[in-house]
Design a protein around this nucleic acid. Structure first.
Lengths: 139, 139
DNA sequence: CTGCGTGCAAATAGTTTGCAGTTCA
DNA sequence: TGAACTGCAAACTATTTGCACGCAG
């Protein structure tokens, strides 16, 4: 299960390198949002030699390619996560960072309607819900 | 109209200084979100001698006191604005930064419901809508 | 008076960029 | 081969902190 070569044809990436494979692999195996710094130190711990710069650059490429989702905590930390392509939002635990993907068609429509009413064009929005998950609340 | 002394009794502020008055005044006269840096340079332009550090610290105090609203652009810039106390969201122009306050009781309820369904406690959320306002679209 | 507030300069923290060397296709 | 990628170090930006002084109450 390990020595599997990196052969992921990821749109937007012209070249497949070991480093990108490592980053992508790590993103794939976890479900939660991570900071570039966290990803980098995890990679180092497991022995993967990847520079912090490369992590940043790879994440940028992945975001551009639509392979990775990015969001920001109220505190300002930038987070990344491999994520389904469809538009959705997140319910994030303040403590442990675990996330649940949620969809709200009604909210999307509401946002578009509000924007239209005020004559705003080219509309997008951000929406995240924060709370304490059952696991963390128990403690 | 100028020499008016600073006498704003702002809850959470133990002391009323000229600098805090200037920041508060500036926040009061504009409707749009501003970065600490913008606020600072505007103050300097108009001759008010206020240190950048003080702007940051004052904004923090105001946020704690609930006098000022803060949000973050997708790009990561932190923005502040004097704002009504009721919970609401914003429709923000990507170009000129002008904002419209919007309310969405349905959205609030939806967010709380979703969180409750997943057992999340102590829920809050962030929601901002971005677009190009009619003014900017015209150009 | 007394200590909260101020502001400079220095420290931080996260992220980006320049550039020489490396590697994939 | 050669363009794309890598990674170190240095540069940058936004924000915070240490500390001596000033001013409000």
């Amino acid at each position: 299960m390990e020595g599997n070569p990196v052969t992921q044809t990821t749109p937007g990436m012209t070249r497949n390198t070991r480093q990108r494979g490592e980053v992508l692999a790590l993103l794939t195996e976890t479900d939660d949002f991570r900071t570039p710094q966290q990803l980098h130190s995890t990679l180092r711990e497991r022995g993967a030699k990847v520079g912090l710069t490369t992590v940043y650059r790879t994440l940028q490429v992945l975001v551009d390619a639509g392979q990775v989702d990015t969001m920001r905590l109220p505190s300002g930390e930038q987070l990344y996560r491999r994520c389904s392509r469809t538009h959705h939002h997140h319910l994030v635990c303040r403590d442990c960072g675990s996330t649940v993907e949620v969809e709200g068609p009604a909210v999307e429509k509401w946002a578009d309607k509000i924007a239209a009413e005020h004559g705003y064009a080219d509309v997008s929005h951000t929406l995240e819900i924060f709370g304490t998950c059952p696991e963390c609340a128990r403690r």
